[in-house]
Amino acid sequence: MSSLIDVENLTLQFRTDEGLVTAVDDVSFSLAKGEVIGLVGESGSGKSVTAKSLMHLNARNALYAPQSKITLYTDAGEVDVLSLRTARELNVVRGGAISMIFQEPMASFAPAITIGSQMVEQLQLHGDMSKAQARKISVEMLDRVGISDPHKRIDQFAFELSGGMRQRAMIAMALSTQPKLLIADEPTTALDVTIQAQVIDLMKDLVNEFHMGIIFITHDLGVVAQTADKVCVMYLGRMVEEGPVREVIRHPKHPYTRGLIQALPRLDDLDSPLTPVPGDIPSPLERPSGCVFHTRCQEILGDICKSALPHDTQLDATHRVACHLHDTKEVGA
């Protein structure tokens, strides 16, 4: 499969009053066309910031380290995302080749403008088409995502739709420009389980139909197991484990991934106690030295975890982990 986007050594800090805060630290991954990546981690792990970097959407106080590189492969050639500056250049990644769905659909639609006008507006911005054409495409998209009566719905406001319907409309809007990559930031977290199941089904159908790549950000490993091909687990800005979904969920190698899986309440075993990952994620202002996870790790080896950053260890062609338990390279001084 050919690559759609490559992220290499992405390091991102925010300038704040309290000093430089590292949000993403040396993260690399790549996504092929038609592939679904699940980006997993607790709040504060840097998953949303990583995704937003792909669209250059982070706030102005964001500082990308010089070695960071994001390459998007489009039909027109390679695009170096982080070098884009003007609004016109950024249109390529913002709504052009990449679309994003946010967690809270009510907050993502303008409340006083109809769903239709918002869909038509972005279609006209990104494609050369008439209002009537754009409206026709919008109605088709609403129909495609399973909204009944799209001719009537298109002239309604976001508050007139239910939560599930709003998220469907959001997906329709994101897909109407035919992006190559869809970033879905916790798209089902605010929904009921029954509606979540419907939205997940819909997204799976759409991947097959439009053959686009999806980055699915979530803290729910169950959702990842049901949707993703590949999982990236993040903790405090670092990618701690990456691999095919079956591998990572069945044979997690990093203690943090194991902790996340054990913390899930399981329906097939009601007697097993719930085991939280102990402690809280540290503030990014007080990043632990060495392995960032050592303050909460149950399998800590000793001083090496507190002093040295673990290398990425490639367990096989597709599964890699950053943990001293698996570190086969000699740790340099």
């Binding site: 029954t194 199941a197 419907q198 169950g222 197991a225 049901q226 979904v245 899986i261 899930l264 329906l267």
Partner: peptide, 16 residues
């Protein structure tokens, strides 16, 4: 409707 942790369970759920 609860998403199963087993990736091979996909699509087996009875959807409402």
């Amino acid at each position: 409707a609860i998403p199963s942790l087993d990736p091979d369970d996909r699509g087996k759920a009875q959807k409402l």
